[in-house]
Amino acid sequence: MSQIISSLTEVSDRYDALFVDLWGCVHNGVHALPEAVAALQTYRKTGGKVVLVTNSPRPRAGVTKQLVQFGVPDDAWDTIATSGDSARSAMFRGVVGQKVHLIGYPGDERFFEPIGVVKDPIDVQIVPLEQAEGIVCTGPRDPMANPATMRPEFLMAKQLGLKLLCANPDIVVDRGEVREWCAGALAQLYTEMGGESLYFGKPHPPIYDLARRRLFELGVDVPDSNILAIGDGVLTDIAGAMGEDIDSLFISGGLAAAETKTVTQPEPDALSAYLEKEMSAPTFTIGHLR
């Protein structure tokens, strides 16, 4: 059974660094969550390092701007690792070819801006599906539309033998009180239809490798045993931490608030039933980051 705690300070002195999810933990897609911000500020004052590890398809600079818009102060974190940056690095190394078809929100063309960490990047071009060598999916074109609407396009893509690079493995997020589909839902559908999807965000190893590199860039070498991963997704944040053998703190009041009967804190029996159903074993659980 995951240990239910009431505040981060109960366990934070065991860890030198935090890998912290953003959406549902530090902000709700509309504004910052004050208690979470305060908890991270307090942790950093003790000398701990905070790496924001997000499945956002945006580059690090784009997430930094978004944090300002949401009201997350820069003294609550040290550095950022995004699924977008991890996926962009792979794209510019040619994992889905040079000519790619984009599935994403309006404005996601910024995903194709040059990146400095790849030696001799290929010249990626956005083309119609019938001309593509691969697909880049940053998210659904309409986050409210059922992913099944993509079936005809995905059938053609599968017949062409195209790989799909998924820039955000999240299935859903809650923007305030509204639940939206993410790129992971489309990649999941494509895989179920027999296509091949490539993932670079949580729970997959590439983003954790990037997070460790970001941590090392801060001038600290922290062993995995001294890192705590924090997030509200058992299939992403907690599964990723378990796969990396990193301790984890599950935020039950995010995506699983209803299942865990979380208002302030989770109802223990509901939490136990939910974690058993999802075959998940976070080290600790808290209703909301505070």
Rank of each mutant, 00 (worst) to 15 (best):
T285C: 03
D85L: 07
A145Q: 10
D78Q: 04
G62Y: 01
T82G: 15
L162W: 00
E180S: 12
D142L: 03
R214E: 02
V117A: 05
A281P: 13
M144P: 11
C25K: 04
E109M: 11
P121G: 15
G287E: 02
T82Q: 13
E133Y: 01
Q265R: 10
E35G: 06
V100S: 00
T260N: 05
T260Y: 01
S56D: 01
N168Y: 14
K163E: 02
I4F: 14
L102C: 12
Q3P: 10
D78I: 09
E259R: 13
K49V: 06
S83K: 04
S280K: 04
V100R: 00
I286Y: 12
R93P: 15
D174M: 14
C182F: 10
A39L: 04
P121C: 09
V127T: 02
D221S: 14
A257Y: 05
C137T: 07
D224W: 05
R44P: 06
L165N: 01
Q188C: 15
I286Q: 05
P121K: 15
V95N: 01
G84H: 13
E196S: 13
P282A: 14
Y190K: 05
A87W: 00
P121R: 13
P73F: 08
F92S: 02
L218G: 01
N226R: 11
Q131C: 15
L275V: 04
T9Q: 10
L215M: 15
K163T: 08
T64K: 12
A241I: 09
G195A: 01
P223Y: 04
T138R: 09
G71N: 07
S280F: 15
G94H: 09
A229C: 13
N146D: 05
S86A: 06
L271K: 06
K163P: 07
P147I: 04
R214D: 06
T236L: 02
A38D: 07
E10W: 12
S86L: 06
A76P: 14
T54R: 09
D174T: 06
I5N: 13
A258M: 04
I230M: 10
W77D: 01
F92D: 00
T64I: 12
C25Q: 09
L67G: 02
L165H: 00
E278D: 05
Q159W: 05
I80F: 06
V95T: 03
I135W: 02
T42E: 11
E217N: 13
R151W: 04
A61C: 09
P266K: 01
I251L: 01
E244T: 14
P169H: 08
L249Y: 10
S252C: 13
S197Q: 04
F250W: 01
M1V: 10
N146L: 07
D245P: 04
F92A: 00
C166G: 02
K158F: 15
F216Q: 09
S56N: 02
F200E: 00
Y105E: 06
L33M: 07
T264N: 10
S83Q: 11
L162E: 00
H204C: 09
F92Y: 03
P205H: 14
A132S: 12
Q131W: 10
L271V: 12
S7K: 06
K158C: 13
G94F: 02
D269R: 11
L33E: 09
Q265I: 14
H101T: 03
F284A: 00
G287D: 04
S252K: 11
T262H: 03
L198Q: 01
T9N: 11
E244Y: 05
M156Q: 14
A281I: 11
L235I: 03
D120C: 12
D142Y: 03
P206E: 03
